[in-house]
Write a protein that binds this DNA or RNA. Structure first.
Length: 263
DNA sequence: GGTACCTGGAC
DNA sequence: TGTCCAGGTAC
């Protein structure tokens, strides 16, 4: 376990970048790009060993990715209801693509990425209630696309086609606390990726680093309202990966007051 | 051992 | 661009 000052961490990131291509140390894991960097730094997951470590976050992403940036995980309230495994997955889920193959016949999936600027084709959307200071999940069966008509019949049979009752939500204060503790300051590292055709091994070049300081919660709410921050459900029967708040590409620096280019 | 978090994808 | 999806750990 290495210990860094902020300055020595910056120097270490520059060294790692100068090393060029580095082999993925976590084969078969999509998170390998971030885990490999943590291994190079000699740090443990989500635990930057610098003064005020709790105030710093390390985020790693491929340079040419169309994927969203995960900000944090947080399950919806009321927490005691265990909404995802007890209601959304069984009543609004669907058979997993690999049910009866990789997973049991009964394996179900509830994985969807939704936002505040319209409905998904399963009729789900995000509502912002500024008066109650809540972010709510909503279902409108009239917005379900034709390709999901069989699924919609299942929902009707399971629980009915009205609004989810009660609606899952996150309080502004919960979100602000989560973002404020996890994302207050961040190193945002982007890496080029190549794959050896023979060995199938992946290599990373950590070639771009930004230092982001002072997360702005009002900006977070604005982006949520605009549909640039999305809510991502990620559950199958055997594993709920958790509910994520995610950001459209390259928008991360927009959520901070101060941005410094390190590399 | 289940739940809620973590690291992130391809098409 | 949204619809789907991966292997992990902390407690």
């Amino acid at each position: 376990m290495n210990i860094y000052t902020k300055e020595s961490l910056i120097e270490k990131l520059k060294e790692i970048s100068a090393q060029g291509w580095i082999e993925n140390g976590r084969h078969g894991n999509d998170g390998g790009i971030g885990n490999t960097l943590e291994d190079l730094l000699g740090i443990e997951e989500n635990n930057l060993p610098i003064p005020n470590a709790a105030e710093w976050e390390l985020k790693t992403q491929r340079l040419k990715t169309s994927s969203l940036t995960t900000l944090f995980h947080i399950e919806p309230s009321p927490r005691a209801m265990k909404f995802v495994p007890s209601i959304l997955l069984p009543h609004y889920g669907w058979p997993h693509q690999r049910a009866g193959e990789k997973y049991p016949e009964t394996e179900r999936s509830f994985r969807m990425t939704i936002h505040g600027n319209g409905r998904s084709d399963r009729g789900f959307g995000v509502q912002i209630d500024n008066k109650e200071r809540k972010v709510l999940i909503s279902f409108d069966s009239s917005k379900v696309g034709e390709r999901h008509s069989v699924w919609l019949e299942g929902v009707k049979k399971n629980i009915g086609l009205g609004e989810i009752d009660p609606q899952p939500y996150w309080g502004f204060d919960d979100l602000e606390h989560k973002a404020g503790t996890k994302l207050l300051n961040a190193f945002y590292v982007q890496a080029a990726v190549k794959r050896d055709k023979e060995t199938k091994k992946e290599y990373y070049h950590y070639s771009k680093v930004l230092m982001l300081q002072r997360f702005d919660f009002s900006g977070f709410l604005k982006q949520l309202e605009a549909g640039n921050i999305l809510i991502d459900f990620d559950a199958r029967t055997g594993h709920n990966h958790g509910t994520k708040f995610r950001l459209r590409q390259n928008c991360l620096p927009d959520l901070y007051e101060k941005v410094t280019e390190i590399i």
